[in-house]
């Protein structure tokens, strides 16, 4: 699902030739912000993400029926259509769908961010080691990524999640186990391209240890590309965890989960279109946000690719 971000070559724009010997945050940040603002869609993406994050943070305190997300039921009010009292209608046990969509943002966003953070940490570390030191360790690491990348990610995630058992934490672990190889490859490609650059040579000749050069000089320069991938992948990770929830491997009730809600609503498609529709829209919107943001970040950090996508 990470197909959109297939471009794994390190960007020449990030090379030290242009940026000088070391990554210079302030100067780059200013330039980046200017480029970012020029792309209205990226701003929209950022706005969506900020909004979703705000909803996830404070939403649970502002929703009209906070108890509906933590175990309260109102069976006699089940499957009522959208109204002023329930803008998104009610679900099969009479809970406010709006409340549950809002509170569900927390689990979804958390899942997306944690999955990518875990995958990024593990993948980048292994990829950097493989790329910088090479040798049989590097080969071994890359062969392992081959194995993971050979199995379609949803099948593998399904297998991991089933083996680990239900629950949000297990689902997050399962999805990160599927996603780290992507970062591993990207990091390795970047590190291989950068390790022999002048600035790295220079750092080594000044007596920097190999590990120190890798972590202080090489990796920071490889990081922007990885970050572009990550910003898009958060959206896809949300999509994947929602898919697992839909299949039946999500959070345990009564905690709201968008994927589980779409799945529950499926039984009442004709009577209660709102039940599946709104949580589905929430997923779509969030993923769109991360995609736009990712596109924008790529434009900023990788101008060569500007005209694409």
């Amino acid at each position: 699902m990470s197909a959109v971000g297939v471009d794994q070559r390190p960007s020449p724009a990030l090379g030290p030739g242009r940026l000088g010997r070391r990554f210079r945050p302030s100067e780059q940040a200013r330039r980046a912000a200017r480029r970012f603002r020029q792309s209205p869609l990226s701003v929209v993406g950022l706005a969506i993400i900020v909004a979703v994050a705000a909803i996830a943070l404070v939403g649970p305190f502002l929703v009209p029926y906070p108890d509906d997300a933590s175990g309260a039921l109102n069976i006699r009010e089940k499957l009522n259509g959208p109204s002023w009292a329930h803008p998104f209608g009610t679900d099969h046990v009479g809970r406010d769908v709006f409340t549950r969509v809002v509170v569900g943002a927390r689990a979804s966003l958390l899942a997306g961010v944690v999955v990518i953070a875990l995958a990024l940490a593990v993948g980048t570390l292994l990829g950097a080691v493989a790329g910088y030191f090479g040798g049989w360790v590097g080969d071994a690491i890359m062969r392992v990524t081959d194995i993971f990348l050979t199995i379609p990610d949803l099948i593998l995630a399904l297998a991991f999640a089933a083996a680990l058992g239900p629950g949000l934490l297990n689902v997050m672990i399962a999805v990160s186990l599927v996603w780290w190889p992507g970062y591993c490859r990207l990091a390795r490609a970047n590190v291989v391209a950068l390790r022999d650059e002048q600035f790295a040579e220079a750092a080594r000749s000044l007596g920097g240890g190999r590990a120190r050069v890798l972590f202080r000089h090489v990796l920071p320069n490889a990081f922007p590309t990885i970050l572009v991938k990550a910003s898009m992948d958060v959206g896809f990770a949300i999509l994947t965890t929602a898919a697992l929830g839909f299949i039946g491997l999500g959070t345990q009730p009564p905690t709201p989960d968008w994927g589980v809600m779409v799945s529950d609503g499926r039984k009442y498609l004709r009577e209660a279109w709102w039940y599946s529709t709104f949580p589905g829209l929430a997923i779509l919107l969030t993923v769109v946000g991360f995609n736009l943001l990712g596109d924008g970040l790529r434009d900023v950090l990788d101008p060569r690719a500007r005209r694409r996508g």
Partner: peptide, 27 residues
């Protein structure tokens, strides 16, 4: 995935909470 059984569990969970009994749903 059995909707009714899940609903009965939720009904129990809601009322048991008033007795200070914490019900965990395990599908």
């Amino acid at each position: 995935g059995l909707a009714e059984e899940e609903q009965f569990g939720l009904i129990l969970l809601e009322k048991a909470a008033e007795l200070n009994i914490n019900v965990t749903m395990v599908p």
